[in-house]
Nucleic acid binder design. Structure first.
Length: 553
DNA sequence: CGTTTTTGACCGGCGC
DNA sequence: GCGCCGGTCAAAAACG
């Protein structure tokens, strides 16, 4: 597309004018090409070599930059598209299995694991699991990806899927399942209804305003995505900071401030201003008990390309939200990770490959109105070691590399918080620098991904986790089957996630990939365990990556 | 002068 | 219905 515009500026400009400026890149290219045509006419005659070359070089540089932006936007659009197709696939599988199985029964405690299920996210995980083993942290795609993926056409599935989803929704209502219908927010995740995707590729259509059905016809034809409930997830980050706001790589504009009940410190509301219509918002408030702790709560997914500094953060929050919504960690009562148990039983500390690290805690809160995952970066390892998870949340330890100290996050208060350094998602942490005190732990070179494996294995090896996972997945699949044992199913032993065939990447935030040969998903329940496990796996990986995000801009 | 922040008003959800 | 509360809006002020 860019080449065409370069070769034929006039026709391109006309094309851009003919089309409504739904896509931002169209406007950018229009400006770019206008610049080319305006500078070339007179300058060629005056100074045919120098000026022309200079202007061409400048324009070429701009072209490269915008090309990169276009690629990013295309990635996002492709991501949404793949998620939609995943949704279709899982709906078809559901239909096939629902015909063979009995209706879903509620759990004994009344809290359905399904409460935090978003079938679309799980479906995205599932299809990614099937499509590509190397999907987890790869945002790059090849033309072969799209070509192969395009063969996975949903067009012939639409009618059947929609009827299935409708029936499923009715059944859900009839069984009085509290499925969080009251907390719809389709904009908070990069998922759109099929009609949206088919009509436009503009990522801005993920906004709230575009979620409403345009007509009764649309409502009839697309009842699935518009009616299936969608939980709004939040990701909260606790960090010690004297600054009024922790810089996370994005640009924010304050649009409100309120005094929250029970807290003398006001709560500030920020909106992302990196793109018009970006739905992402965040709240910043100091903890009432400890005013040195800053609580930043993120909500929504960005509808625009992010700077490198913000990418990891966004991936983290997105992955956390996706994980929360996907139900991989299930409900508050159903699953509590007592990390003492993990530490004792999984060799969490005894692993000789683990260096000194600052531990962080991720707390999954099921409290209304929104499920929230809290990343606590304020506590020292020992504090967390003795910390008791709140009864309404699920907590598990998150090891974060402890060198060097993040003074921005810590606010100079002496708690070892991971250093803010940005690395690409598939980055492997370098070995600790020589001379770094490991606090009594053995000093070895450790990769972040290796730590992910350890923690993931620790969590996944918990029988409670597996049981809850089985319950959660069973709600997706329709009915549980006796799985083949989590240890066999969860094969997390390779630091390179892309090569891990057992735990294949599956989070909504990063999932564009070429499909694998085995398109069909095995209907067995055991096949789904690695998928959910990889969600957890990915989440942990992202959390560790987040510990390297640079602060400040 | 354009952008950002401030701040009171407004709105919707929820409980009583 | 009323009040409380969280969240958002928007006009005015402040800022660069």
């Amino acid at each position: 597309m860019l080449l065409m515009m370069m070769r034929s500026p006039s026709s391109t400009q006309q094309d851009c004018n003919n089309n409504p400026p739904a896509v931002n890149t169209g406007l950018n290219l229009l400006t770019l090409n206008s610049g080319i045509s305006s500078t070339s006419a007179s300058d060629i005659h005056r100074n045919p070599n120098n000026k022309l070359m200079t202007s061409l070089q400048v324009e070429l540089e701009r072209l490269h930059e915008e090309n990169g932006e276009l690629k990013t936007m295309l990635d996002q659009m492709t991501k949404s598209y793949s998620q939609l197709q995943a949704q279709l696939l899982i709906a078809m599988q559901k239909q096939a299995q629902n015909r063979l199985r009995e209706p879903i029964k509620c759990e004994a405690n009344g809290m359905l694991a399904r409460q935090f299920m978003d079938p679309r996210l799980s479906a995205a995980a599932a299809i990614d699991h099937v499509r590509n083993p190397s999907v987890a942290y790869s945002s790059g795609k090849t033309p072969a990806d799209h070509e192969a993926f395009s063969s996975f056409s949903p067009s012939n599935l639409n009618i059947e899927v929609m009827s299935t989803e409708r029936d499923q929704y009715k059944r859900r209502l009839q069984t009085n399942i509290n499925c969080a219908e009251d907390a719809l927010d389709r904009s908070s995740q990069c998922l759109v209804s099929p009609n949206h995707t088919s009509k436009s590729s503009d990522p801005n259509l993920l906004d709230d305003d575009n979620d409403e059905p345009k007509s009764s016809t649309d409502q009839e034809q697309v009842p699935v995505a518009d009616q299936v409930p969608f939980r709004k997830a939040r990701v909260s980050v606790r960090a010690r900071s004297e600054a009024p706001m922790i810089s996370d790589g994005c640009q924010w504009r304050k649009y409100g401030q309120k005094m929250a009940k029970g807290n003398p410190c006001p709560r500030a509301y920020y909106r992302c201003t990196m793109a018009i219509g970006c739905p992402v918002r965040k709240q910043v408030q100091r903890l009432a008990e400890d005013k040195t702790i800053l609580i930043t709560t993120y909500e929504g997914n960005h509808s625009h390309p992010l700077p490198p500094a913000a990418t990891a953060m966004a991936n983290t929050t997105s992955a956390a939200a996706a994980m929360l919504l996907s139900g991989s960690t299930t409900s508050k009562e159903a699953l509590q990770y007592h990390h003492h148990h993990h530490l004792a039983n999984s060799g969490f500390f005894s692993n000789s490959q683990l260096p000194f690290f600052a531990s962080s805690m991720a707390t999954l809160s099921a409290s209304a109105p929104f499920p929230t995952i809290t990343l606590d970066l304020t506590q020292s390892p020992m504090q967390q070691f003795h910390r008791i998870p709140p009864p309404s949340s699920s907590t598990f330890p998150l090891p974060l590399h402890g060198y060097p100290i993040n003074h921005q996050l810590m606010g100079g208060l002496g708690h070892p918080i991971p250093a803010p350094m940005y690395f690409p998602p598939n980055y492997k942490a370098p070995p600790p620098p020589a001379g770094v005190s490991l606090g009594g732990q053995r000093s070895t070179s450790t990769h972040a991904s290796g730590m992910v494996e350890t923690v993931s294995a620790a969590i996944a090896s918990d029988p409670n986790f597996t049981a809850a996972l089985a319950a959660a997945l069973s709600t997706i699949m329709g009915a549980p089957r006796p799985h083949q044992g989590h240890q066999e199913s969860i094969n997390i032993n390779d630091g390179d996630i892309a090569n891990n065939n057992a735990a294949r990447g599956v989070v909504a935030s990063t999932n564009n990939s070429p499909p694998s040969a085995n398109i069909g998903v095995p209907p067995g329940f055991a096949a789904w365990i690695p998928t959910a496990s990889s969600l957890l796996h990915h989440f942990l990986h992202q959390l560790i990556i987040y510990s390297y995000v640079p602060l400040g801009h």
